[in-house]
C-alpha cells in the first residue's frame, strides 16, 4: 500500500470515525446532522469505502452526496455543501424519516442512560434549569423515526472533581429525555410505543464500542488497545453487561486514515475530544 506519509499510528478521533463508519449500511439514506464532525467524517468515509451507494444527506445544508472542500467548524457552510448532487429541504428530509426511509441517524447526549435515552436539553428540572444545553435539533423526532440510530460520545471518560465526585456522561437517569432509546423513564418498552424506528443499535465512545442486548440495555462489545472493561466500568454511572466475545476494536488502515486527514485538514473533529484524548494514538498492525 502506498504510504507516502509513513503513517504508523492512528489517533483516537480516527479510530472513532472508523468505528462509526462501520455502523453505516450501504444503500441506505443517512443524515449527519450538525455539530457532529466525527459523524460527518464517518459518513464520507463509509461512502468512500464499503457504502458507495449510501445516500448521504448533509446536516444543515440538506445537500445530497456533497464532496466537501474541507470540514468546517460550522455545518451550514458552502464548503460542506460543495458538489452536492441535489438538495432536499428541511421538510423533505424529515418527511423521509417519518415515512420510514431514513436508514440511520447519529445522536449524542450530555447524559446517556442504559437504554440509550439521551439528554441534550437541560440539567435540572422544570422549576429550575441548572444547565441549559443547546437542544437536540431534530434529534427527538429522528430518534423515533429513523430505522436505526448510532449513538456516539467523545466524553465517556469522566475526571473526578476535587471532592472525588464524578459527573458521569453515562448516567443512571437522564434529567430530560430529548431522544428516546429502548425504554422510557417510566419503564415503558419502546416496542409498545407506536414508533417507526428500531432505536439505537450501537454506541461508540472514547473508551469502547457498545451494542444493545435483547433487553435493549447497553452492552460492552469492544475496548480499545489502551482501555479495559474495568476502566469503562469506572467511568460509567450504571452497571452494564459485557458481551461473551469481547474484542479489541479494529483500527482503520492507512488509506482510510489518509482519507480522513485530507478531508479534515484543520482537524475540526478533534474539537469533540478532550485535550488528553487528542494525544491518544494507536500503533497500526504491521506498520
Amino acid at each position: 500500500m502506498n504510504n507516502k506519509n509513513n503513517i504508523q499510528t492512528c489517533t483516537l478521533g480516527e479510530l472513532m470515525i472508523y468505528q462509526i463508519a462501520l455502523s453505516i449500511e450501504d444503500g441506505i439514506l443517512a443524515f449527519h446532522g450538525f455539530g457532529s464532525p466525527l459523524v460527518q467524517l464517518a459518513l464520507h468515509l463509509a461512502k468512500h469505502t464499503h457504502a458507495p451507494r449510501l445516500i448521504l444527506v448533509a446536516g444543515a445544508t440538506y445537500g445530497v452526496n456533497p464532496t466537501p472542500a474541507f470540514l468546517t467548524p460550522t455545518s451550514n457552510d458552502f464548503a460542506m455543501n460543495r458538489g452536492a448532487e441535489c438538495h432536499l429541504n428541511i421538510e423533505e428530509l424529515f418527511d423521509l424519516a417519518a415515512s420510514g426511509r431514513l436508514g440511520r441517524m447519529f445522536l449524542s447526549g450530555l447524559q446517556i442512560d442504559r437504554w440509550g435515552n439521551l439528554n441534550v436539553t437541560r440539567l435540572g428540572n422544570d422549576a429550575r434549569v441548572t444547565l441549559k444545553l443547546p437542544g437536540g435539533g431534530g434529534g427527538c423526532n429522528l430518534s423515533c423515526d429513523a430505522a436505526h440510530v448510532t449513538i456516539w460520545t467523545a466524553a465517556h471518560r469522566v475526571v473526578p472533581n476535587d471532592q472525588g465526585r464524578r459527573r458521569y456522561r453515562l448516567v443512571e437517569h437522564c434529567d430530560f429525555v430529548t431522544s428516546i432509546g429502548h425504554r422510557t423513564s417510566e419503564g415503558i418498552h419502546r416496542s409498545s410505543l407506536p414508533l417507526r424506528g428500531q432505536g439505537p443499535d450501537c454506541m461508540i465512545t472514547d473508551l469502547g464500542v457498545f451494542d444493545f442486548n435483547g433487553d435493549g440495555h447497553l452492552q460492552l462489545k469492544a475496548v480499545y488497545p489502551d482501555t479495559s472493561v474495568e476502566l469503562v466500568a469506572e467511568n460509567t454511572g450504571f452497571d452494564f453487561p459485557v458481551t461473551e466475545n469481547l474484542t479489541t476494536a479494529d483500527l482503520p488502515d492507512v488509506a482510510l486514515i489518509e482519507f480522513i486527514r485530507n478531508l479534515d485538514p484543520m482537524k475540526i473533529h478533534q474539537r469533540e475530544l478532550g485535550p488528553t484524548d487528542r494525544e491518544r494514538t494507536f500503533q497500526l498492525n504491521g506498520a
Binding site: 423526532n141 422510557t184 415503558i188 410505543l193 407506536p194
Partner: peptide
C-alpha cells in the same frame, strides 16, 4: 399529526 415525540419528555414540556 406526527408519530414521533412519544416517549420523550417533550410531551411534558
Amino acid at each position: 399529526p406526527i408519530r414521533s415525540v412519544q416517549g420523550t419528555d417533550f410531551m411534558q414540556l
